[in-house]
């Protein structure tokens, strides 16, 4: 643990970008946890007298076409965006790694079935498949989560399958077999701890993509319904005002979205360095 912390400090000092990403990550988490408490205005309160005000002291990000404070809406939206992405990523992480580990460990039919499932999902353009799923299951936030989870499933299944596969006959796995350990026990105690680091990297890189995906779906009008504050839908609402010069409606939530995704991607890269110094990119 001490060694890990030292390594962490080394990676952070070597790579100030990762440090910045980590700080940004903390900020995002705080915004998600305390959102409504720290927002200066009620994100849903309309004010016909103050529509489309450009950014200023009173409204740092300006106001939208209904006079709502864009700054407050951007902050409050964090929880919803992060929540959707986190739930989706964890769903696909658990389902994906369970499937992938079994496929890599037992091979044979398990492997073929899991492979076929993930190939079939991957045969679709993933965003398009997500659109189809939400359309079929119904237009709701939960269904956005399920759709995002499903299209990410193959990535987790593949990584965990590959990582398990190369280790399934490692000396220490055989040694555990010689100690009479059952397959399930070997998977949980011997293999899973070893494939966790690459999976964590995958989670971090995937988080950004899941956020983008969820925001993209709400941008085209799926999932989140107005007047709820969510970055994708805010950009969609602001899009019509871009051509007439009211840029702040779309730009601020868009920038927040971009910053969040950027942060997770940087963290993923940093984590990769932390986990595997040889595979630096």
């Amino acid at each position: 643990m001490k060694r890990f912390l030292r390594h962490l400090r080394y990676v952070m000092s070597e790579n100030p970008v990762t440090l910045a990403a980590f700080s940004l990550f903390l900020l995002i988490v705080i915004m998600a946890l305390l959102g409504p408490a720290i927002a200066p205005y009620d994100p849903l309160a309309t004010d016909a007298a103050k529509t489309l005000k450009p950014p200023g002291w009173q409204h740092p990000f300006g106001t939208d076409h209904l006079g709502r404070d864009v700054f407050s809406r951007v902050i409050v939206a964090t929880r919803l965006d992060l929540g959707i992405a986190l739930s989706a990523v964890f769903l696909s992480f658990f389902a994906g790694s369970a499937l992938g580990c079994s496929a890599g460990f037992w091979g044979g039919w398990t492997d073929r079935i899991v492979g076929r499932i993930s190939d079939t999902i991957m045969a679709f353009p993933l965003f398009v498949l997500a659109m189809g799923i939400v359309a079929a299951l119904g237009n709701s936030v939960e269904n956005i989560i399920y759709a995002t989870a499903l299209i990410n499933l193959p990535f987790y299944a593949r990584v965990s399958r590959a990582e398990t596969y190369v280790r399934r006959n490692a000396g220490y796995v055989n040694a555990a077999r010689l100690c009479g350990a059952t397959d399930a026990r070997i998977l949980v105690t011997q293999l899973f701890p070893n494939i966790l680091p690459p999976m964590m990297v995958q989670i971090s890189l995937n988080m950004g993509w899941a956020i983008l995906n969820a925001a993209g779906l709400s941008f085209i009008g799926l999932g989140v319904r107005p007047p709820d504050a969510e970055w994708g839908i805010m950009v969609a609402e602001g899009a019509t005002y871009i051509v007439s010069g009211e840029w702040w409606l779309a730009m601020f939530p868009g920038a927040a979205l971009m910053a969040a995704v950027f942060c997770f991607n940087l963290l993923g890269d940093g984590l990769r360095d932390l986990v595997d110094p040889q595979r630096r990119t």
Binding site: L212, V243, V261
Partner: peptide, 18 residues
């Protein structure tokens, strides 16, 4: 590379239009 994968396409498009 890192910035590119973080760009929401709809946002980039709007930004370019602006």
């Amino acid at each position: 590379v890192t910035a590119g994968v973080s760009l929401p396409t709809f946002f980039t498009g709007l930004f370019l239009i602006y």
